[in-house]
Amino acid sequence: MTAQPDLILQLVQATEDVFKTMVFRAIEPVLPADSDGKRPRSNVVGIVGFGGSISGLVAFYSTLDAAQEIAGSMLGLDPADVNGEMPDAIGEVTNMIAGGFRLRMAQRGETLAISIPSVTVGSDFYTRFATDVRRVMCPFKMGDRDVSVELILTRS
């Protein structure tokens, strides 16, 4: 893996923390892998940028069904009753994962600022980032659903 394993561990732990405390769903990490050229099956992508002593992006990927489940669990609703709240919920999940990553990095002396989250919902789209980046995909199992968090680091 080309990104520092410690950074990936921080991101995985930040993600597990958010799901345990705010999504109220258990997730199981699957082995992270370099993700250059790979695209997880997703209809929902949340992105938060960060900059400072290291810079890059944290991206959260899920299917529409998984995103509805996540939003429902956060709001205390049945997934079928979730309407327009889903993008906001996924934005918050991404924001908290990036925030948790930032906090963990701060404890290691890395000062980062993070952006506000943006969320894309749709089909037949892909996210393209600058080519000079290192990308590591961290997949998770949420019951029978798949979600992924990607760490994208600029090479500077």
Binding site: T21, G99, R102, L103, A106
Partner: peptide, 27 residues
Amino acid sequence: VTTNAAKDDIVEALRAGVNSYIIKPFT
């Protein structure tokens, strides 16, 4: 209640007049 968890953030919030600070995610 915020994800802004850096020491400087907390100091700024306390100076602004906040009584306490909860970092997201929280239990």
